[in-house]
Amino acid sequence: MSAPLLEVENLATHFFTRAGVVRAVDGVSFSVRPGQVVGLVGESGSGKSVTGYSLLGLVDPPGRVVGGSIRFEGQDLVTLPPDRLRTIRGRRISMVFQDATATLNPVLSVGDQMLLAVKAHESISDKAGLALALASLSRVGIPDPASRLNAYPHQLSGGMRQRVAIAIALLHRPALVIADEPTTALDVSVQAQIIHEMRELVRVSGTAVIWITHDLATVSSLADDILVMYAGRVVESGPTRTILREPRHPYTRGLLDSVPSRNPPGVDLPQIPGSTPSLLSLPPGCPFAPRCGFATGLCATMPAVENGEGRTWRCHHPQGIAA
Protein backbone atom coordinates (compact mmCIF):
# COMPACT_ATOMS: atom_id res chain seq x y z
CA MET A 1 0.00 0.00 0.00
CA SER A 2 1.45 3.36 -1.05
CA ALA A 3 2.11 6.23 1.36
CA PRO A 4 -0.86 8.51 1.95
CA LEU A 5 -1.25 11.55 -0.27
CA LEU A 6 -3.39 13.33 2.28
CA GLU A 7 -3.52 12.77 6.01
CA VAL A 8 -6.14 14.59 8.02
CA GLU A 9 -5.80 14.35 11.75
CA ASN A 10 -8.23 15.56 14.35
CA LEU A 11 -9.54 18.30 12.10
CA ALA A 12 -11.87 20.71 13.88
CA THR A 13 -13.73 23.51 12.09
CA HIS A 14 -16.04 25.63 14.19
CA PHE A 15 -18.37 28.51 13.34
CA PHE A 16 -18.53 31.28 15.90
CA THR A 17 -22.09 32.53 15.51
CA ARG A 18 -24.09 34.89 17.69
CA ALA A 19 -26.17 31.94 18.84
CA GLY A 20 -23.09 30.03 19.96
CA VAL A 21 -20.25 27.89 18.65
CA VAL A 22 -21.27 25.46 15.92
CA ARG A 23 -18.87 22.53 15.92
CA ALA A 24 -19.44 21.67 12.26
CA VAL A 25 -16.38 19.42 12.09
CA ASP A 26 -15.14 18.06 15.37
CA GLY A 27 -12.16 15.73 15.41
CA VAL A 28 -12.21 14.19 11.94
CA SER A 29 -9.29 11.96 10.89
CA PHE A 30 -8.75 10.10 7.63
CA SER A 31 -6.21 9.58 4.90
CA VAL A 32 -6.29 9.34 1.11
CA ARG A 33 -3.79 7.35 -0.95
CA PRO A 34 -2.76 8.37 -4.49
CA GLY A 35 -5.47 7.30 -6.91
CA GLN A 36 -7.89 6.36 -4.16
CA VAL A 37 -11.56 7.36 -4.25
CA VAL A 38 -12.91 8.19 -0.81
CA GLY A 39 -16.62 8.77 -0.26
CA LEU A 40 -17.59 11.26 2.42
CA VAL A 41 -21.20 10.41 3.21
CA GLY A 42 -23.68 12.19 5.43
CA GLU A 43 -26.90 14.16 5.64
CA SER A 44 -27.19 17.93 5.76
CA GLY A 45 -25.40 19.31 8.79
CA SER A 46 -23.15 16.27 9.12
CA GLY A 47 -20.06 18.35 8.34
CA LYS A 48 -19.14 16.55 5.12
CA SER A 49 -18.97 19.68 2.97
CA VAL A 50 -17.24 21.76 5.65
CA THR A 51 -14.62 19.02 5.89
CA GLY A 52 -14.01 19.34 2.16
CA TYR A 53 -13.86 23.14 2.29
CA SER A 54 -11.49 23.02 5.27
CA LEU A 55 -8.95 21.04 3.24
CA LEU A 56 -8.64 23.90 0.77
CA GLY A 57 -8.88 26.77 3.23
CA LEU A 58 -12.27 27.74 1.82
CA VAL A 59 -14.08 28.19 5.15
CA ASP A 60 -15.25 31.78 5.52
CA PRO A 61 -15.74 33.65 8.80
CA PRO A 62 -17.41 33.18 11.21
CA GLY A 63 -16.01 29.71 10.52
CA ARG A 64 -12.41 28.77 11.24
CA VAL A 65 -10.25 25.67 11.37
CA VAL A 66 -9.53 25.57 15.10
CA GLY A 67 -7.49 22.42 15.40
CA GLY A 68 -5.86 19.43 13.79
CA SER A 69 -3.56 19.02 10.84
CA ILE A 70 -3.95 18.42 7.10
CA ARG A 71 -0.74 16.90 5.73
CA PHE A 72 -0.56 16.98 1.95
CA GLU A 73 2.61 16.25 -0.04
CA GLY A 74 4.77 16.99 2.97
CA GLN A 75 3.13 20.25 4.09
CA ASP A 76 0.52 21.09 6.72
CA LEU A 77 -2.23 22.98 4.88
CA VAL A 78 -3.65 24.32 8.15
CA THR A 79 -0.56 26.37 8.97
CA LEU A 80 0.48 27.12 5.39
CA PRO A 81 0.47 30.87 4.55
CA PRO A 82 -2.37 31.87 2.16
CA ASP A 83 -0.07 32.61 -0.78
CA ARG A 84 1.51 29.16 -0.54
CA LEU A 85 -1.92 27.53 -0.21
CA ARG A 86 -2.94 29.35 -3.40
CA THR A 87 -0.21 27.54 -5.35
CA ILE A 88 -1.70 24.23 -4.25
CA ARG A 89 -5.38 25.10 -4.62
CA GLY A 90 -6.50 24.57 -8.20
CA ARG A 91 -3.17 22.99 -9.16
CA ARG A 92 -2.44 20.07 -6.81
CA ILE A 93 -5.88 19.92 -5.18
CA SER A 94 -8.95 21.14 -7.04
CA MET A 95 -12.62 21.22 -6.30
CA VAL A 96 -15.87 20.50 -8.13
CA PHE A 97 -18.99 22.00 -6.58
CA GLN A 98 -22.60 20.87 -6.70
CA ASP A 99 -23.93 23.77 -8.71
CA ALA A 100 -21.97 24.25 -11.90
CA THR A 101 -24.13 27.25 -12.81
CA ALA A 102 -22.75 29.09 -9.79
CA THR A 103 -19.22 27.80 -10.36
CA LEU A 104 -18.84 29.14 -13.87
CA ASN A 105 -18.59 32.82 -14.69
CA PRO A 106 -21.64 33.67 -16.82
CA VAL A 107 -19.96 36.52 -18.71
CA LEU A 108 -16.86 34.64 -19.81
CA SER A 109 -16.75 32.05 -22.55
CA VAL A 110 -15.72 28.54 -21.55
CA GLY A 111 -12.35 29.04 -23.24
CA ASP A 112 -11.67 32.36 -21.50
CA GLN A 113 -12.38 31.05 -18.03
CA MET A 114 -10.36 27.93 -18.64
CA LEU A 115 -7.49 30.11 -19.83
CA LEU A 116 -7.69 32.13 -16.59
CA ALA A 117 -7.51 28.91 -14.61
CA VAL A 118 -4.46 27.77 -16.58
CA LYS A 119 -2.67 31.09 -16.23
CA ALA A 120 -3.30 31.25 -12.50
CA HIS A 121 -0.59 28.62 -12.10
CA GLU A 122 1.49 28.69 -15.27
CA SER A 123 2.95 31.38 -17.47
CA ILE A 124 1.92 30.12 -20.83
CA SER A 125 0.83 31.56 -24.18
CA ASP A 126 -2.89 31.88 -24.95
CA LYS A 127 -2.51 29.35 -27.71
CA ALA A 128 -0.84 26.73 -25.54
CA GLY A 129 -3.30 27.44 -22.74
CA LEU A 130 -6.29 26.93 -25.00
CA ALA A 131 -4.74 23.72 -26.26
CA LEU A 132 -4.63 22.51 -22.64
CA ALA A 133 -8.25 23.57 -22.19
CA LEU A 134 -9.26 21.70 -25.32
CA ALA A 135 -7.50 18.53 -24.18
CA SER A 136 -9.17 18.75 -20.78
CA LEU A 137 -12.63 19.23 -22.31
CA SER A 138 -12.25 16.20 -24.52
CA ARG A 139 -11.05 14.12 -21.56
CA VAL A 140 -14.37 14.66 -19.77
CA GLY A 141 -16.41 13.47 -22.75
CA ILE A 142 -17.61 16.79 -24.16
CA PRO A 143 -18.58 16.31 -27.78
CA ASP A 144 -17.12 18.85 -30.23
CA PRO A 145 -14.90 20.50 -27.58
CA ALA A 146 -13.41 23.09 -29.97
CA SER A 147 -16.78 24.77 -30.50
CA ARG A 148 -17.56 24.64 -26.75
CA LEU A 149 -14.55 26.86 -26.05
CA ASN A 150 -16.50 29.75 -27.55
CA ALA A 151 -19.76 28.91 -25.81
CA TYR A 152 -21.03 30.73 -22.73
CA PRO A 153 -22.26 28.76 -19.71
CA HIS A 154 -25.94 29.59 -20.37
CA GLN A 155 -25.67 27.93 -23.77
CA LEU A 156 -24.78 24.60 -22.17
CA SER A 157 -27.02 22.04 -20.51
CA GLY A 158 -26.63 21.24 -16.81
CA GLY A 159 -24.67 18.09 -17.54
CA MET A 160 -22.34 19.91 -19.96
CA ARG A 161 -21.78 22.71 -17.44
CA GLN A 162 -20.77 20.20 -14.78
CA ARG A 163 -18.43 18.55 -17.29
CA VAL A 164 -16.81 21.94 -17.96
CA ALA A 165 -16.38 22.45 -14.20
CA ILE A 166 -14.76 19.01 -13.96
CA ALA A 167 -12.55 19.82 -16.96
CA ILE A 168 -11.37 23.00 -15.19
CA ALA A 169 -10.66 21.02 -12.03
CA LEU A 170 -8.57 18.56 -14.03
CA LEU A 171 -6.65 21.19 -16.05
CA HIS A 172 -3.45 20.92 -14.04
CA ARG A 173 -3.72 17.18 -13.54
CA PRO A 174 -4.12 17.55 -9.77
CA ALA A 175 -3.19 14.83 -7.34
CA LEU A 176 -6.52 15.22 -5.54
CA VAL A 177 -9.99 16.37 -6.59
CA ILE A 178 -12.61 17.21 -3.98
CA ALA A 179 -16.07 16.78 -5.49
CA ASP A 180 -18.98 18.12 -3.42
CA GLU A 181 -22.26 16.50 -4.53
CA PRO A 182 -21.20 16.89 -8.17
CA THR A 183 -24.11 14.92 -9.61
CA THR A 184 -26.88 15.71 -7.14
CA ALA A 185 -28.45 18.44 -9.26
CA LEU A 186 -28.38 16.35 -12.43
CA ASP A 187 -30.87 13.99 -14.00
CA VAL A 188 -30.47 10.27 -13.44
CA SER A 189 -29.23 9.52 -16.95
CA VAL A 190 -26.72 12.40 -16.91
CA GLN A 191 -25.58 11.44 -13.41
CA ALA A 192 -24.89 7.93 -14.68
CA GLN A 193 -22.84 9.34 -17.57
CA ILE A 194 -20.72 11.56 -15.31
CA ILE A 195 -20.09 8.84 -12.72
CA HIS A 196 -19.08 6.51 -15.53
CA GLU A 197 -16.69 9.14 -16.92
CA MET A 198 -15.26 10.00 -13.50
CA ARG A 199 -14.45 6.36 -12.86
CA GLU A 200 -12.58 6.21 -16.17
CA LEU A 201 -10.71 9.47 -15.50
CA VAL A 202 -9.57 8.30 -12.08
CA ARG A 203 -8.42 5.00 -13.47
CA VAL A 204 -6.46 6.57 -16.32
CA SER A 205 -4.97 9.59 -14.55
CA GLY A 206 -4.38 8.20 -11.07
CA THR A 207 -6.05 11.23 -9.51
CA ALA A 208 -7.36 10.70 -6.01
CA VAL A 209 -10.93 11.84 -5.34
CA ILE A 210 -12.87 12.79 -2.24
CA TRP A 211 -16.50 12.37 -3.30
CA ILE A 212 -18.86 14.17 -0.92
CA THR A 213 -22.47 12.98 -1.11
CA HIS A 214 -25.64 12.10 0.75
CA ASP A 215 -26.34 9.25 -1.67
CA LEU A 216 -25.12 5.84 -0.57
CA ALA A 217 -25.96 4.23 -3.91
CA THR A 218 -23.78 6.67 -5.87
CA VAL A 219 -20.68 6.09 -3.77
CA SER A 220 -21.26 2.37 -3.45
CA SER A 221 -19.96 1.72 -6.96
CA LEU A 222 -17.45 4.57 -7.08
CA ALA A 223 -15.56 4.78 -3.81
CA ASP A 224 -12.86 2.44 -2.52
CA ASP A 225 -13.44 3.61 1.04
CA ILE A 226 -16.18 5.59 2.72
CA LEU A 227 -16.47 7.74 5.80
CA VAL A 228 -19.94 8.09 7.26
CA MET A 229 -20.37 11.40 9.07
CA TYR A 230 -22.95 12.45 11.63
CA ALA A 231 -23.10 15.74 13.54
CA GLY A 232 -19.52 16.74 12.72
CA ARG A 233 -17.85 13.40 13.43
CA VAL A 234 -16.93 10.30 11.48
CA VAL A 235 -19.08 7.56 12.97
CA GLU A 236 -17.79 4.78 10.77
CA SER A 237 -15.18 4.31 8.05
CA GLY A 238 -13.57 1.56 6.00
CA PRO A 239 -13.78 -0.30 2.67
CA THR A 240 -17.00 0.78 0.94
CA ARG A 241 -18.66 -2.53 0.17
CA THR A 242 -17.72 -4.03 3.55
CA ILE A 243 -19.30 -1.09 5.39
CA LEU A 244 -22.44 -1.23 3.28
CA ARG A 245 -22.73 -5.00 3.68
CA GLU A 246 -22.01 -5.14 7.41
CA PRO A 247 -22.45 -1.70 8.94
CA ARG A 248 -21.24 -1.44 12.53
CA HIS A 249 -22.77 1.90 13.45
CA PRO A 250 -26.54 1.92 14.01
CA TYR A 251 -26.78 5.18 12.02
CA THR A 252 -25.20 3.60 8.92
CA ARG A 253 -27.45 0.61 9.39
CA GLY A 254 -30.50 2.84 9.75
CA LEU A 255 -29.67 4.70 6.54
CA LEU A 256 -29.21 1.45 4.64
CA ASP A 257 -32.38 -0.12 6.01
CA SER A 258 -34.47 2.86 4.91
CA VAL A 259 -33.44 2.61 1.23
CA PRO A 260 -36.71 1.75 -0.60
CA SER A 261 -35.14 -0.71 -3.04
CA ARG A 262 -33.99 -2.85 -0.10
CA ASN A 263 -37.56 -3.27 1.11
CA PRO A 264 -40.58 -5.05 -0.37
CA PRO A 265 -42.82 -2.53 -2.18
CA GLY A 266 -45.63 -0.95 -0.23
CA VAL A 267 -44.53 -1.88 3.27
CA ASP A 268 -43.52 0.71 5.84
CA LEU A 269 -39.83 1.50 5.55
CA PRO A 270 -37.66 1.03 8.62
CA GLN A 271 -37.11 4.66 9.57
CA ILE A 272 -34.69 6.52 11.79
CA PRO A 273 -36.90 8.48 14.19
CA GLY A 274 -36.48 12.20 14.81
CA SER A 275 -34.23 14.50 12.84
CA THR A 276 -30.59 15.52 12.81
CA PRO A 277 -29.74 17.42 15.98
CA SER A 278 -28.90 21.11 16.03
CA LEU A 279 -25.13 21.45 16.23
CA LEU A 280 -25.72 24.25 18.75
CA SER A 281 -27.29 21.91 21.28
CA LEU A 282 -25.75 18.49 20.84
CA PRO A 283 -26.53 16.00 23.56
CA PRO A 284 -23.56 15.08 25.73
CA GLY A 285 -22.11 11.76 24.68
CA CYS A 286 -22.99 10.10 21.40
CA PRO A 287 -24.90 12.60 19.22
CA PHE A 288 -26.91 9.81 17.59
CA ALA A 289 -28.11 8.33 20.91
CA PRO A 290 -31.50 10.16 20.99
CA ARG A 291 -32.46 8.55 17.64
CA CYS A 292 -30.79 5.19 18.23
CA GLY A 293 -32.64 1.97 18.96
CA PHE A 294 -29.59 0.44 20.62
CA ALA A 295 -28.80 3.33 22.98
CA THR A 296 -28.24 2.61 26.66
CA GLY A 297 -27.06 4.65 29.64
CA LEU A 298 -23.52 4.14 28.40
CA CYS A 299 -24.27 6.36 25.39
CA ALA A 300 -24.37 9.46 27.59
CA THR A 301 -20.58 9.34 27.31
CA MET A 302 -18.80 9.93 24.01
CA PRO A 303 -17.65 6.63 22.51
CA ALA A 304 -13.99 6.41 21.49
CA VAL A 305 -12.92 5.59 17.95
CA GLU A 306 -12.26 1.87 17.73
CA ASN A 307 -10.66 0.07 14.86
CA GLY A 308 -9.98 -3.35 13.47
CA GLU A 309 -10.07 -5.24 10.17
CA GLY A 310 -9.18 -2.08 8.28
CA ARG A 311 -12.21 -0.14 9.51
CA THR A 312 -13.11 2.25 12.30
CA TRP A 313 -16.31 2.86 14.24
CA ARG A 314 -17.38 5.14 17.03
CA CYS A 315 -20.12 3.41 18.98
CA HIS A 316 -20.68 1.77 22.35
CA HIS A 317 -22.90 -0.84 20.72
CA PRO A 318 -21.32 -1.74 17.38
CA GLN A 319 -23.45 -4.10 15.30
CA GLY A 320 -22.27 -7.40 13.93
CA ILE A 321 -19.50 -8.10 16.44
CA ALA A 322 -19.81 -10.10 19.62
CA ALA A 323 -19.95 -7.85 22.66
Binding site: V188, S189, Q191, A192, A217, T218, S220, S221, R241, L244
Partner: peptide, 27 residues
Protein backbone atom coordinates in the same frame (compact mmCIF):
# COMPACT_ATOMS: atom_id res chain seq x y z
CA UNK B 1 -34.85 0.36 -20.16
CA UNK B 2 -32.11 2.99 -20.30
CA UNK B 3 -33.53 5.00 -17.42
CA UNK B 4 -33.78 1.99 -15.14
CA UNK B 5 -30.24 0.96 -16.06
CA UNK B 6 -29.01 4.45 -15.12
CA UNK B 7 -30.29 4.33 -11.55
CA UNK B 8 -27.33 3.96 -9.22
CA UNK B 9 -27.62 0.68 -7.40
CA UNK B 10 -26.48 0.15 -3.85
CA UNK B 11 -23.57 -2.20 -4.42
CA UNK B 12 -22.55 -4.19 -1.36
CA UNK B 13 -20.21 -6.70 -2.94
CA UNK B 14 -17.13 -6.12 -5.06
CA UNK B 15 -18.26 -8.82 -7.47
CA UNK B 16 -21.38 -6.74 -8.27
CA UNK B 17 -19.30 -3.85 -9.58
CA UNK B 18 -20.56 -4.33 -13.10
CA UNK B 19 -19.70 -1.86 -15.81
CA UNK B 20 -22.75 -0.45 -17.47
CA UNK B 21 -23.22 1.63 -20.57
CA UNK B 22 -24.99 4.84 -19.68
CA UNK B 23 -27.63 6.14 -22.04
CA UNK B 24 -26.03 8.39 -24.65
CA UNK B 25 -26.72 12.09 -25.14
CA UNK B 26 -29.15 14.34 -23.35
CA UNK B 27 -32.83 15.17 -23.47
Amino acid sequence: QALLASVPRLVTSDSDLAEFRPIAGEI
